[in-house]
Design a protein around this nucleic acid. Sequence first.
DNA 1: CTGTTAGCGCCTTCAT
DNA 2: ATGAAGGCGCTAACAG
Lengths: 337, 337
Amino acid sequence: MTRSKPSSVTIRDVARQAKVSVATVSRYINRAAPVSSEVAARVQAAMANLKFVPHASAQRLATHKTNALGLLVGSLHDFFSPMFTGIEGVTNAAGFDLLISSSHQKELPLTLGPHNTDGLLVFWDSLSQASLRHAYEQAFPIVLIHQSPPEGLAIPCVTVENQAASRRLVDHLIEAHGRRRIVFLRGPADNEDSWRRETGYRQALDAHGLPFDQRLVTAGDYDRAVAEASIGRLLKAGVEFDAVFAADDDTAVGALAALRAAGRQVPEEVSVAGFDDQRISAYVSPPLTTVRAPTEEVGRQAAQQLVNLVRHKPAEPLILLPTELVIRRSCGCAGEA
Amino acid sequence: MTRSKPSSVTIRDVARQAKVSVATVSRYINRAAPVSSEVAARVQAAMANLKFVPHASAQRLATHKTNALGLLVGSLHDFFSPMFTGIEGVTNAAGFDLLISSSHQKELPLTLGPHNTDGLLVFWDSLSQASLRHAYEQAFPIVLIHQSPPEGLAIPCVTVENQAASRRLVDHLIEAHGRRRIVFLRGPADNEDSWRRETGYRQALDAHGLPFDQRLVTAGDYDRAVAEASIGRLLKAGVEFDAVFAADDDTAVGALAALRAAGRQVPEEVSVAGFDDQRISAYVSPPLTTVRAPTEEVGRQAAQQLVNLVRHKPAEPLILLPTELVIRRSCGCAGEA
DNA sequence: CTGTTAGCGCCTTCAT
DNA sequence: ATGAAGGCGCTAACAG
């Protein structure tokens, strides 16, 4: 490999070839001011001819805009792909570069920040509250994904409706399938979605006069292996249950595995349900009853809010995307699949 | 939201406070030349005091280095997460920003290029050969992932061993389970891995004196739904087969679904095997026999090669990571899971 | 070891 | 509608 040329074609080359000043070329590029159509044509031709591409750093230095957006993520789950697709689609369409970092430090200064981005998309498990507060005080544009802002900070947030859907799902387990001892497999302790899902679960229990049993609520951590171990433990301890509501589909899949290993029939002996409707969920056996979360749309909306913010246009403080029950076979229904 | 401050603290402010010249501060920051410890301390203090963060664009403009690496991907499969984890780990450790784009244009000029990155990681389905050639001629650092360089271009490539593992897997289907009519579910036509896997499949057939039947090779496209439809079609057409070797696990899962829908027992009536060992594969029913591909390591290695290239250090022309057979139950074995 | 001074490539007043 | 010129923040010779 050889070294790349220190200098490529610049705006000056274009100007020379088009026989205009660099200012005019700049105007044409940025549509910052009208340019006579004659000149426009010449500039256009020169740019194409020279294959001119504006040097991002120079533009940034001059404008004090990075023209880039950052995405901060913590651990990477399977739903990251659709989420990313949504985000990338709008950032790209809006003409921003997308920087991404999964640095687990959670604290500032980060690899992503005001020095290299105009704004940040931050995922629930990627940044500490203190760091968020700090960024907010610097008036640095941020939008939160699957996480509410800290008390008092007006940082836009986009997430999905959790509670009502969970409530409906657990209602279904109880009403349609007569389940009465339903395990809830929690997500990580600092995940709000999981808390809301748990709230829906408890509401359903209450509404049907079913007692809340602490032993039925155990760790899932959005992790198949953890869920599998938890269910295994319950089984071993002889805790009776006839259904499992998992905080996400990954967790539900872990539960399925544990149940199968123990020879428990799903859904005949125990119903299983999850949350998210990930790509895999329709394909496990039995196909998973779950709640569909519009993950890609979450990504799109979040990115759109950030673009708005960066452009000093109004942004929604909170976007709650609707979710939808999807009944398949793991709950005991005949199912769609 | 308010607007961010147009100007922050610059190197000049630091210089003034430390009572030195900007050049000295710059030297200290970049360790470009020795600085007396006294001065170093003052500069250090001033930087901390002022919370100085170098303006990336200014550095980039001055040095002609973007200090950023780009990742170009096409469609996003589930194995993207581990892959990304590997990549991000090393780019981050090496001090580079990571830009990512899934723009489907495949042609230059791209959103990622010499204007905003020092080098590119390009995934097999993300860039046309012509574009690759062009970039190569500009001496722009590139590392290919799961794709060989076009004829004559010395572009480093990292991928996994496909053929021998496929051969072993199909051998196993034939020898251990007596399968003789084995379907191969192809990946996309332009995917090299799929071709190599198919070659391994044909070698195994040959080695056992089994005839190659064109009707048994059909589209999988690394897509569950496509695979499901293909197997469904075969079943409907009355084509006899006793095993399915899918070009990847996603595809295998689609096959599993089609077989189940048709009431065919896996593995009793038909063996199924895939490739990759994705996160889900141990959890489907029955657990999938497959070939483990070290996806995260592929990401790490590719990123490392690119870092080397960018730093004008030698890079391996080809890195072929070893794969490993993982026998579970879908082939007919008792299995691990 | 340290200071001075040109640029890097582009944008943006300010004139014209 | 267009050109000239200053500057964005930093690095990198070149002196000293």
